[in-house]
Amino acid sequence: PPQTPVRTAMNTIQQLQMILNTADDKPSNTLEAYFHNCTVNPTNGITNRVEYLGQRFRENFAQAVGEGWVEIGSQRYKLGVRLYYRVMESMLKSEEERLSVHNFSKLLNDATFHGSLLACAVEVVMTTYGTTWSITLTSDIQTETDLSFPWILRVFDIKAYEFYKVIESFIKAEPNLTREMIKHMERCEHRIMECIAWQTDSPLFDILRQQREQEDQPDQPEPTST
């Protein structure tokens, strides 16, 4: 029988809790082994970034919905970090199998990759628990604060074009995402493709420019990325 919106939301929360209740707040032994295999060990960069972005998240969350909700924001972020490590490990296992590579130094030292992956994980958590908050400013005025996508991009200072790159791999790496969550991520993709990636400060324009310059020089090797 078709589900009510409330039942659907409850299922999504239960599914996320099932995945994350036993997940690590810190990199697992498997993940640490991948870090150790890197030419440059990325551990400090990763943990420092998680700490820094956590501060930014809590500040922006409190600013958006009020200081009284800071603890809720902290819990959301903590769950996002667990999902981030879990998906990172799953992605690395897939890449290891696909490429027969064990040293992921370049990827794991890429700040943009980590920022985008963490933003994606936090977006999943935020969407699961709902992102519209009604706050009362005075007894007569009530306003809604929208923390839905692309709010997280502003908080983490991530370009939509870079965030877009992790979405499909994220979905492949976490098979326990509900249908509703996958549809939400797909809507994020469409919004990026149709609008946000074309905003003035997008890296997409530099890439298009570089592609055009390479096409104008026929002796240049064909770029590996398209």
Binding site: L99, K106, L107, V166, S169
Partner: peptide
């Protein structure tokens, strides 16, 4: 996954997307 459109080809993954291949 049935409703999601997977755009990456067989030989493509996160490493290629971040120029780490």
């Amino acid at each position: 996954f049935q409703d999601y459109h997977f755009g990456l080809d067989e030989g493509e993954g996160i490493s290629e997307l971040f120029d780490c291949d």
